[in-house]
Amino acid sequence: MTDAKDDLRVYLQDARDVLLWKLEGLSEYDVRRPLTPTGTNLLGLVKHLTGAEALYLGAAFGRPFAGTPLWFTGDAAPDSDLWARADESREDIVSGYRRAWAHADDTIAVLSLDAVGRVPGAPREITLHRVLTHMIAETHRHAGHADIVRELIDGTVGLRPDGVHVAPYDPGHAGRVEEAAKEAAARCS
């Protein structure tokens, strides 16, 4: 029999690892540059999730993380958690994320899944189980964003550097998808 809390933590850790792997081997410019019209960038995703872990798996359970980012206290510009300033180093942002997740893992370890907390500013109490479910979804969502951004940078895809869970690259695939889209659009017009 497996431990439900440990299963949830493993799924969260898998997404954390994927997110950081997406930074490997890239230049400072590539980890910071916006690749969508809304500015999505790899280092900004890491910075954002650092704050989310500090908030949801720290402050919400009366376990503040020493280094909770300013964007959660209202002392920062809007969306400042979604990009890295030139004076913020990749190493500091990544190490801050690792520290936040270690703090979050301590919270997970010491509390039961039915422990109740309250996200600052939220109207109702929530359980650790619900928060963990939320953080898994949030982190996997942003790992998916990172996957797309990394593919736009250099074509690298997948959950891990070994390419597991990814079909072999087929240069004709995108063309087939485009043709199917055009054909479907023509049928509907």
Rank of each mutant, 00 (worst) to 15 (best):
R90A: 10
D106M: 12
H103Y: 10
A86E: 15
A102R: 13
T36N: 10
T107V: 11
L45N: 11
I108L: 04
G39T: 08
R98D: 14
L19Q: 03
R33W: 01
W71C: 00
L42S: 06
P64D: 12
G51F: 05
E53N: 10
Y56I: 13
T38K: 12
K47N: 02
G39R: 09
A102W: 10
P69I: 12
D87F: 04
L26W: 15
S80P: 09
D106G: 15
S80F: 02
L26F: 15
L82W: 05
E88F: 05
G74T: 03
K22F: 03
A102Y: 07
Y29I: 15
D106T: 13
G58N: 06
L57D: 08
V31D: 09
E24V: 08
A54G: 08
A84H: 01
G62M: 01
D92I: 02
Y29M: 12
Y97W: 10
P37F: 03
L35W: 07
D79S: 06
I93D: 02
R99A: 15
F72C: 00
R85H: 06
D106C: 10
F61T: 11
G39A: 09
L26V: 14
L35C: 08
A84R: 02
F61K: 12
L82M: 09
D87W: 10
F61M: 15
G74D: 04
D75S: 06
